[in-house]
Nucleic acid binder design. Structure first.
Lengths: 165, 165
DNA sequence: GGACGATAGACGTTTCAACAAGCGTCGTCT
DNA sequence: AGACGACGCTTGTTGAAACGTCTATCGTCC
């Protein structure tokens, strides 16, 4: 087959600029996620689980209720119980019902969990650099700004992810 | 950049600017995805399935092999067979083995599928506007540019998603 | 023209996400 | 104090994703 001579103009692959932006967002997330997952799968972790451990680390030596942790995750998780089951089975977290209120289950990170995070920290940092290390600091900041603006109306006003400035 | 001016207030929620950008990407994708999913779930479709139907629509009245379709999807799908099983069961697509090469299965969109896309088109357009309608055209274009730049090294050079300009 | 490797999908199995319903616990109202 | 409703989590079930393995078909080489 010979080379197609004059490309008859790029066909409109997208219905609208909104769609183009969203599909690019999806695609970019998907591509970068591959890099993350490759790393975590070596430790039998999902990105979401790692995220949860990081939040518990931030709360350490304190604890937090199961569902409170669920709402702080990047991507919402309607099944915290079983996710924590898996983490607890590996002794990465511990759970306890307090006598004051036996409804809530307080979750905390364990020494084993902290050790795992410590072991991972360097690799995660490298991973993020592999993902986005080719962008300049200025570009990254601009990207963050735009992403925040993009999701701003979809965040709860008081939430952890809502824009404050 | 000189060393930190007064920046004591905000706690370092992120390890690095790379991480901040990636987590913002993740979060933004997740928030906007909610809007899409709400729409598609009413039609018992996933975003990925819709995406596949759109690709088949673009090829219509032609067809394409199963795996070729798989590689064109936004997010990679290692199990095209069963995804197409579900779509075929609903008569949205049709599959056929051609005598010339009985290994490949050619997939095409059916009239029912085209009708569904037609029914959806307005709603999808509205959905995208609800997702990102608050951003200016200039912001959207800038966002697309940055997203493309972000994933560029992670795309295959010849691929459908690789930056050409 | 038969053996061989490569190709394209199908399929079995395991794991995980999502939704819904259920159960113990607590606060409150009368 | 007992009833009632809200809360916080657990559990059952269903459906889909991920991974490896298997089958059929094709091209090629001798």
């Amino acid at each position: 087959m010979t080379t197609a001579p004059p490309r008859p103009a790029r066909k409109p692959r997208f219905d609208s600029l909104y769609q183009e932006a969203y599909l690019n967002l999806w695609r970019t997330y998907d591509r970068l996620k591959v890099v993350e997952d490759e790393l975590f799968v070596r430790f039998d972790l999902s990105a979401q689980q790692y995220n949860a451990l990081r939040l518990l680390e931030a709360a350490h030596p304190g604890t937090m209720p199961t569902l409170a942790l669920g709402t702080k995750l990047i991507s919402r998780a309607p099944d915290m119980t079983r996710m924590l089951d898996r983490l607890e089975e590996r002794k990465l977290v511990h759970r306890e019902r307090k006598p004051e209120n036996r409804r809530v289950v307080e979750v905390g990170i364990s020494p084993t969990g902290l050790a795992l995070l410590d072991e991972l920290s360097g690799l995660v940092r490298e991973g993020h650099k592999r993902q986005l290390g080719h962008l300049s600091s200025r570009e990254l900041k601009q990207l963050v700004e735009l992403l925040q603006a993009a999701r701003d109306p979809h965040e709860e006003p008081g939430g952890r992810w809502h824009r404050t400035k």
